[in-house]
């Protein structure tokens, strides 16, 4: 494990394998909460936060508890329950001790339990056989990529507000078509990480 390896995992998670635009994880918040820049940033900050904590907890559970005891098949149940409990716990702690942070992120926390990006990243870390540090870096990259896509898309949607769109395309359909164009731009990163590091 070297620093270049970690950097390549980070860049791949942000750009080439962007969670929203190439893996389709976390589409609901992407479409639902990206209308304004500040909510997009708040939501993605909460996602990054929960992804990191969830990985820090689920990776040791899988490695030291499930795998040695041949309980791999319980992965789905254990992970989703851990994430749900964790999100609830974080919400309570933030509310009590860090009111500023709670006001910024707290409102998004209940939505994150059922966000497939969080469960997705914890499962992917195991599937890819990453070690603990690589898993944390991958989660950070996934979260940052989520934020990048959300923020970029909030800008695109700002422009859609004022444009003249055919009636049946208004609202959700044109949002999806614009998401498709943003995804095309991300296709441009294909091969970037391999080209840089391998």
């Amino acid at each position: 494990m070297s620093v270049t390896n970690l950097v390549s995992i980070l860049l791949a998670a942000i750009l080439t394998n962007n969670f929203i635009l190439s893996k389709f994880l976390g589409i609901c918040p992407f479409l639902g909460v990206s209308k304004k820049l500040d909510t997009a940033v708040g939501m993605s900050a909460a996602v990054i936060f929960v992804m990191l904590i969830a990985t820090a907890v689920t990776w040791p559970i899988q490695t030291y508890l499930l795998t040695p005891n041949d309980l791999d098949y319980l992965q789905t149940i254990v992970f989703i329950l851990v994430i749900a409990a964790l999100v609830q716990f974080v919400e309570i702690v933030l509310k009590k001790y860090m009111v500023g942070l709670y006001n910024a992120l707290g409102v998004y926390l209940p939505l994150i339990t059922t966000n497939c990006a969080v469960l997705g990243v914890t499962i992917l870390n195991i599937d890819e056989k990453y070690n603990f540090i690589e898993s944390m870096v991958n989660s950070l990259g996934g979260g940052l990529g989520f934020m990048l896509a959300m923020v970029l898309f909030a800008g695109v949607r700002g422009r859609l507000e004022t444009s003249d769109i055919p009636k049946s395309l208004q609202g959700l359909p044109i949002t999806l078509v614009s998401a498709s164009l943003v995804a095309i731009s991300f296709l441009g990163f294909q091969g970037l990480v391999d080209g840089l590091f391998k």
Binding site: L21, L172, P173, L176, V177, A179, S180, A183, I184
Partner: peptide
């Protein structure tokens, strides 16, 4: 492009437009 991710968003958008 239709089996890549942009195609997914595009087809989904147009199907919803049709349903609308």
């Amino acid at each position: 492009i239709f089996i890549l991710s942009p195609g997914g968003f595009f087809v989904f958008g147009l199907l919803i437009a049709l349903a609308n």
